[in-house]
Nucleic acid binder design. Structure first.
Lengths: 189, 189
DNA sequence: ACCTGAACACCGTTCAAGT
DNA sequence: ACCTGAACACCGTTCAAGT
């Protein structure tokens, strides 16, 4: 008893990873901490803000440095890190996407992508759209993957290695599209 | 009293559009129909399946024909129709995305996109990834737009017309990326 | 600063029983 | 075939009060 904000977030991460997002309730978390649910409202104004803090922690724990110097390698690195961070916790992708959907959570991934794209010489008017398109792909793909929606076309015997290359392929589509937008088509012919 | 399945879906659509997805509960819908919540379980096995039926109806009502003949125009048309259908109802994008996330709902948009891409000569091994990448963009963009997350970069005075062109721009990125993947770069230089 | 206890206004779902 | 009534096992949130 007598917890700090970080203790609550830490325990929420354990509950998330053990029982899933649906079971990450204020009452359940309170029980897990040996505390009344109302006690949590001393640390967070509501459940949304609690979830936002948990989502931010998921991303913070998945953080790795340094970034490559080439803009396209940096974009790829940021997207891969984001995906890996979300997949590292049960329902992590759905959590981060949900938090984002109610306008909360860290803006770091967006900012990093936008900075990389600007470095790549993409017009400032195109940067926000391109950065958001990358995020839509990463979130969508990770949620699909984590919800076991990645049916694929034919009956694959194993899943995991297939999804890695599927992610890479999808990311290539978006990055190449951005290249075209920037007036620099690829070497493909 | 004494309703059919379709009556329930129709009324659910009204509740959705009037009060939003959060207020589309079994109890609320029952009240709205003048019926006990338990009565709804005669028509649907659970809430997920009810929502799936509602999501399918949203898409069905947004349906418009015929499709263009060129593969890329067809892809654009399917994506635009999907987006418009979801935006036509309050929280429509979140509803369709949610239903999809638990593995339910119509597969028509995916099937149509996959067919168009195959017509475009994209390798059969690349079609599923490309089709899903298009869907990730459309869903992500529509949810952002409908949750008023489309902050943009600078303080825009009006929103609506901006989002239309933003959608078109993002879609261009993905389609051009697919073109590159298919070995057919655009005319850009 | 951090927590209790009790309450308020809700949820989805089940199931025997009615018409 | 379609619905009632009652119950079960939950939710998030508020708020006066305690230490």
């Amino acid at each position: 008893m007598r917890y700090h904000r970080e203790d609550v977030v830490d325990r929420a991460l354990v509950v998330l990873d053990t029982y899933g997002l649906a079971d990450l309730t204020m009452r359940r978390l309170g029980t897990e901490l040996g505390v009344q649910p109302s006690a949590l409202y001393h640390h967070f104004p509501n459940k949304q803000r609690l979830l936002a803090a948990v989502a931010d922690e998921v991303l913070a724990r998945g953080r790795r440095a340094p970034r490559p110097s080439a803009w396209d390698d940096r974009v790829t690195a940021v997207c891969a890190e984001l995906r890996d961070a979300m997949l590292a916790y049960r329902d992590g992708a759905e959590l981060v996407a949900t938090v984002r959907s109610f306008g909360l959570g860290a803006a770091t991934p967006y900012d990093e992508l936008a900075a990389a794209l600007e470095d790549g010489g993409l017009g400032a008017d195109l940067v926000p759209t391109a950065a958001r398109t990358l995020l839509h792909f990463v979130f969508g793909h990770a949620v699909d993957e984590q919800t076991h929606l990645q049916a694929g076309s034919v009956g694959a015997i194993d899943d995991a290695p297939r999804d890695d290359s599927d992610f890479a392929l999808g990311l290539t589509i978006v990055v190449d599209g951005i290249r075209v937008l920037a007036g620099r088509p690829t070497v493909a012919g």
